[in-house]
């Protein structure tokens, strides 16, 4: 019973593993161009397992941002998982706390979406472990592979690669912007605030990103709650 539940989880998670392939590969490539060793890059995927914040940390490392600020930015970007595990808690079968604490590590935007939309009324811990195991395996293995490939790229390509991170951010943002004015506003206000902090040299990069993100999220939410519009659902299409 437990074993077949785990296998069902593996099958359900296969689409995530395939989806992670290019994203993890790109992360490995970029980590290489940022100057991380194979060991350092793979370790980040092993211990953090949160794509967006891993990518962000690369751009902050390149900008020479204080490591403590990188950690704070990681926190701000990843507190959204709080929402996901809070809602997942309703969907999961009761289990001892150490078991729940263990699969909590593997809750990403994608594993959350797959587990939360599962047809079963209540999802077993074994099923969740299956989904997470295959997604996590793909994330770690393809990070390492991407780093190895990155070491063998010609120079003119490595120069063009410097845009990759931003192209990825744009690719993540644009689908959510379509037909959703709130998302457009959130991104634009944060972008304008960051430009303001950048050109006035009021704050350094790490603080500026932190402040623009929080200010935009709070201002737009206050405006929307004042005019009584429904909040947008939790982001679905974003890597790990």
């Amino acid at each position: 019973m437990e074993r077949s539940e785990f296998n069902n989880g593996l099958r359900a998670g296969l689409s995530i593993a395939i989806g992670y392939f290019p994203v993890a590969l790109t992360f490995g490539l970029l980590a290489k161009t940022t100057g991380l060793s194979l060991f350092e890059a793979t370790a980040m995927s092993i211990f953090v397992f949160a794509g967006a914040s891993q990518y962000i940390s690369l751009s902050l490392i390149t900008a020479g941002v204080d490591p403590l600020l990188i950690v704070m930015n990681t926190f701000i970007v990843n507190i959204r998982h709080f929402l996901m595990t809070a809602s997942l808690n309703e969907k999961m079968q009761p289990a001892p706390k150490p078991i729940k604490a263990a699969y909590a590590f593997g809750v990403t935007d994608e594993t959350f979406s797959v587990i939360a939309t599962s047809k079963q009324d209540k999802v077993s811990s074994a099923h969740a472990f299956g989904v997470i195991a295959i997604a996590y395996g793909s994330w770690v293995v393809f990070t390492a592979l991407g780093h190895v490939i990155g070491a063998n790229l010609p120079l003119f390509l490595q120069a063009a690669m410097s845009i990759a991170l931003y192209a990825l951010f744009i690719a993540l943002l644009v689908p959510s912007m379509k037909g959703n004015r709130k998302v457009v506003l959130l991104a634009s206000v944060a972008a304008l605030l960051h430009c303001f902090f950048y050109y006035t040299e009021l704050l350094s990069t790490g603080w500026a990103i932190l402040a623009s993100t929080l200010l935009s999220s709070i201002i737009i939410e206050l405006v929307y709650s004042k005019y009584g519009r429904a909040p947008i659902p939790v982001v679905e299409k974003e890597e790990s």
């Binding site: 929402l83 951010f169 744009i170 959510s176 959130l186 944060a190 623009s212 999220s217 929307y224 709650s225």
Partner: peptide, 29 residues
């Protein structure tokens, strides 16, 4: 959680992308 807090938390992924892209994208080279 209070709805205002959940609202702000769910806004963060979109806001952070805007702040990350601009103006840094113009200075990659």
């Amino acid at each position: 959680l209070p709805p205002l807090v959940t609202g702000i938390l769910s806004n963060i992924p979109f806001a952070v992308l805007g702040a990350l892209i601009f103006p840094a994208v113009f200075y990659v080279q």
